[in-house]
Design a protein around this nucleic acid. Structure first.
Length: 249
DNA sequence: ACCCTCCTGTCA
DNA sequence: TGACAGGAGGGT
């Protein structure tokens, strides 16, 4: 990393010295976090971790170094040639540096982890009286699912989002694991869900909005074959939940 | 479970 | 002008 511009005073806590001059190693995702591994030039074995969280409106964008920056750039990382911009209208996104890899990662099991099966999900969920939809958004238990996909997953699994998480039977548990995987997989293949802000680092718009079965579709006929119900909106933990009363039980 | 905060933009 | 928005952290 040849240079770092902290353009937003909200990010002034960032230790630029821990970042500049470091060689970039792996870049990976864990839950909703983007983790950039930084090696020290003097000792490649010692590293630190730059952690980005896009929250609601954050996005990354590759640009040529000479290109004028678009608005709302909060942070610019200069590589040797290209620049990586962190753009974020609502400024709720976060950037931090950690020495400890464990501290860089979310505590919950990644929702797309190969380890996640009905048995593990059952263990994570056991005893929780919390309704399943808000439970799915608990990053400390299962990392990576947000408000859109939590509703979509419950619909695909035909589970009432209000049902207590700890009391799902085996059939529901299996449908839930399958739905977690397939909804997230498809959404990633579609480059995410763009309502207004989101673009990937190449500037591509997500197309999963067209695939949404319930999210934001109040009053529409349920898309499940033969159901005929209608999508309703309720509020759980101050967040909108969309579901079909007819087929989600 | 509820309430609030952070921040900015859009829409009714 | 107020409600709401993809998130998360805090307090009660």
């Amino acid at each position: 990393m040849s240079g770092v511009d902290v353009l937003d005073p909200m990010l002034s806590h960032l230790d630029v010295g821990a970042v500049v001059g470091r060689r970039i190693g792996d870049i990976r995702r864990a839950g909703k976090r983007i983790i950039v591994e930084l090696a020290h030039a003097e000792d490649e074995r010692v590293g630190s971790y730059l952690v980005l969280h896009l929250r609601m409106t954050g996005r990354l964008r590759w640009v040529e170094a000479a290109e004028p920056s678009p608005g709302r750039v909060r942070l610019a990382l200069d590589l040797d040639g290209p620049r990586l911009l962190f753009i974020d209208t609502r400024r709720l996104g976060t950037v931090s540096v950690h020495d400890d890899p464990a501290a860089a990662r979310p505590t919950g099991v990644d929702a797309l982890s190969g380890e996640l099966d009905a048995e593990l999900l059952g263990e994570l969920i056991r005893g929780s009286p919390q309704p399943i939809k808000p439970w799915l958004m608990r990053q400390d238990r299962l990392a990576g699912i947000g408000n859109i996909y939590a509703s979509e997953i419950c619909h695909r699994a035909a589970i009432d989002p209000r049902r207590p998480a700890g009391r799902l039977d085996d059939a529901r548990l299996r449908r839930l694991v399958d739905s977690v995987r397939s909804v997230l997989r498809e959404a990633i293949d579609c480059c995410g869900t763009t309502f207004s802000d989101f673009q990937d680092s190449q500037g591509r718009i997500g197309s999963y909005a067209e695939c949404l079965a319930v999210y934001g579709r109040v009053g529409e006929t349920c898309r499940r074959a033969g159901c005929g119900g209608h999508v309703e909106r309720i509020v759980q933990d101050q967040r909108s939940t969309f579901f079909c009363f007819r087929c989600q039980l």
